[in-house]
Design a protein around this nucleic acid. Structure first.
Length: 312
RNA sequence: CGCGGGGUAGAGCAGUUGGUAGCUCGUCAGGCCCAUAACCUGGAGGUCAUGCGGUUCAAGUCCCAUCCCCGCAA
């Protein structure tokens, strides 16, 4: 079987999925259907926004299915007679009954080098832990989440400047490269899998809202990782006088201890420095509740008494 | 009609009990200096979101409506 003769269903929802979907379509893969999460009201105005994969699918006249609960609604898949299901960030757990339908099985593009970071937020976890390298893994889908055997990986290097937004773009590119490399082999049955080493398994559960608050008891490195992992959305934050201050970008400066933890010890053209418990962090991009995001110079201009204040 | 904050020079803000606008940064010109992101001098730049809305002798400042931005919630 090859990319033109096989019937493939693509399951995925967000931006990263849509980019891979479009890449596969343009390369000539026979995508017979797209399954995505339902459209949801977005933003303050609750505007019902189509999910990214749906936008792409409709552009190429591919039918889209958006079951509320895939666990209970997947009969329609039988009629599609898929040979293969490829998923990437679909957003729901795929039931065993569905996994059994395609003749060639279900495979998943996962955002980490498994067995590291099984779970919903692998890309953010790589940043959270200040990893230097991560990658995409093409793997077999089994009942246990992200536990199937691995077919191929594509590494991605993370550099200091990367945040969640930029890394997602890199990972999307890697996912497409990986898919284009691996799928032809897989469809011909020439891609053997290797089981994951269970002793090396770690998990990357989705990040809870309370984890967006920066804990000043953590080290500057941990805080730096957290800021990167949560930027540009939703943003890690601290409080200043009961107002949320989101910090979108920061830099580790030094190991100096010159003030109390949480104190702004410098606020001028040279930077806005926050005392962490084991050194200094320069806050570069921030946003006060109700205000727009701005760089530190603008922030200092508008908060001229910030020097010496304490964030918490 | 979910809750709340806000729309004032390119940027970020201030503007007190209503009397036609100020600060910091940037920018332009000149100066100082070996040099500078530092310093000094001077300049340009705003119909204060919109409605030629309402109150008033007088509104950025009070009232009303609309639009837009942001935080939360979903």
């Amino acid at each position: 079987m090859d990319k033109k003769t096989s019937r493939i269903i693509f399951m995925g929802t967000p931006e990263i999925s849509s980019r891979v979907l479009e890449g596969l379509i343009l390369d000539g893969y026979n995508i017979v259907a797209v399954i995505a999460q339902p459209d949801r009201p977005v933003g303050r105005k609750k505007i019902l926004t189509p999910v990214p994969t749906k936008v792409v699918a409709e552009k190429y006249n591919i039918p889209v299915y958006q079951p509320i609960k895939i666990r209970k609604e997947f009969e329609f898949v039988y009629e599609l007679k898929p040979d293969l299901i490829l998923t990437l960030a679909y957003g729901q757990i795929v039931p065993q009954g569905l996994l059994d339908i395609p003749t060639l099985g279900c495979i998943n593009l996962h955002g980490s080098l498994l067995p590291k970071y099984r779970g919903a937020a692998p890309i953010q976890y790589a940043l959270l832990n200040n990893d230097k390298v991560t990658g995409m893994t093409l793997m077999k889908m089994v009942k246990e989440m992200d536990a199937g055997e691995m077919y191929m990986t594509e590494e991605v290097t993370i550099d200091e400047e990367d945040n969640s937004t930029s890394l997602f773009i890199k990972m999307g590119d890697a996912a497409l490269r990986l898919a284009l490399k691996a799928l032809p082999l897989y469809l011909e049955g020439k891609l053997p899998g290797t089981p994951q080493d269970e002793s090396l398994v770690t998990f990357a559960p989705s990040i809870k809202p309370e984890e967006e608050k920066i804990d000043l008891n953590k080290t500057k490195e941990e805080i730096f990782g957290q800021i990167r992992a949560l930027s540009d959305v939703p943003g890690a934050y601290l409080y200043l006088d009961n107002l949320k201050i989101k910090i979108y970008k920061a830099r580790i400066v030094s190991d100096e201890i010159v003030g109390e933890v949480g104190e702004i010890i410098k606020a001028d053209k040279g930077g806005l420095y926050l005392q962490a418990n084991n050194g200094l962090l320069a806050l570069l991009d921030l946003q006060k509740e109700g205000k727009n995001r701005m760089d530190y110079k603008s922030f200092i201009n508008g908060n001229q008494n910030i020097l010496g204040q304490k964030l918490k």
